[in-house]
Design a protein around this nucleic acid. Structure first.
Lengths: 193, 193
DNA sequence: CGTTGCATGTAAGGTGTTACATGATTAC
DNA sequence: GTAATCATGTAACACCTTACATGCAACG
């Protein structure tokens, strides 16, 4: 039953990268969005737990999604600003997205923690410099947490689902863990001075 | 004073990606390592807070590091197994690494949390499936934490510096935050059933 | 009238992965 | 002898980013 390599009749498995599905997913919240808007929503929504793709990347994924007929585009005239091209998810796209959510292997999160890797090689430099780096990281963390706490409470006008606050809270816990670790590091680095 | 484009005399700024410095950094722990070994150490040491590059990538970075004279290679004969090519950091490499650690802008960590982005679009699928996904993620998390706790205590024979345990503890805090978030998610998802 | 924000896109290149190829050595 | 581990490497490609180019609209 399962895909004999020869009988490639039903082998429709258009197999796109995660980024494509991330973009496609933003179209499931009930609004038609342009590439420009999607760029904004991706920053506003999943930046803190799933990085934000470059603008050019988003446009490229939209082309691919349309080619796979997972999304359709239509021009939208605007008086107060330049016209735009809005995208809408298709039923085929909804199905593909659902399959992607359901039946992917559960990959481990990938963390590229730049301040941590620098500290990992911190024996090469003056500890005072390390404290500066980690302190600056801490400030960014606090900003991130503010962001996430706001997003969890007020999703003003933004396209989301009922599960969004839950994910924001999840992400906040991760960053709070980072904050705890950061403070621990700061305390221990202070002892080295 | 700052680099006139013409007077390119002192413009030695060999400007390598973070991965190159991550590999180079592993050579500062006092052992000469081969590409094969570096692949192992990178998995063993910073996988949980800085992803592990592909094997072919490591070999490529080693070539580049040598070209920049940040590292030197020398063949090492082994009786019990195939000979290898071991790499050693050079004084120029040490200097470049120290500068990299000190004077980079403090980039935010990049998190690509696959389970979280899938939950973010979880309104497309049956909640029971989401619980399965998150539960599987939880199991991986526990493994990760075991890893990190062991690394923090016993660095058996592995090349590390005095700061390593600190970074492992930091990473552990981040993953413990993830664990907290995961349990929160699981609890709330159960209410949806 | 120049700057900023909206909006779309291309070009070029760097980063990183998978898959493959090779060969030695150890263990079953 | 054949599988697994050690060890190095290449080829092909996918992914992603930076930088640039274009044009409209609004604001001061």
């Amino acid at each position: 039953m399962a895909a004999t390599p020869d009988a490639s009749e039903k082998d429709d498995e258009v197999d796109l990268p995660a980024t494509a599905f991330a973009v496609l997913g933003l179209l499931t919240f009930g609004q038609d969005l342009s590439g420009y808007e999607l760029r904004g929503w991706s920053k506003g929504s999943f930046r803190h737990f799933y990085w934000s793709p470059a603008q050019s990347q988003i446009y490229r994924e939209l082309k691919r999604l349309e080619a796979a007929s997972f999304a359709e585009s239509h021009p939208v005239a605007q008086q107060d600003r330049p016209d735009k091209i809005a995208y809408r998810i298709t039923p085929a796209g909804e199905q593909a997205l659902a399959r992607w959510v359901e039946s992917q292997p559960v990959d481990r999160p990938v963390l590229k923690h730049h301040p941590a890797i620098r500290l990992f090689f911190g024996h090469m430099v003056d500890p005072a410099v390390l404290i500066d780096i980690v302190t600056e990281h801490r400030e960014a963390l606090v900003e991130t947490l503010d962001d996430l706490e706001m997003q969890s409470v007020a999703l003003t006008g933004e396209p989301t689902s009922g599960l969004s606050p839950l994910v924001f809270d999840w992400a906040a816990e991760i960053h709070r863990g980072d904050l705890r670790g950061t403070d621990l590091v700061l305390k221990r680095l202070a002892q080295l001075l």
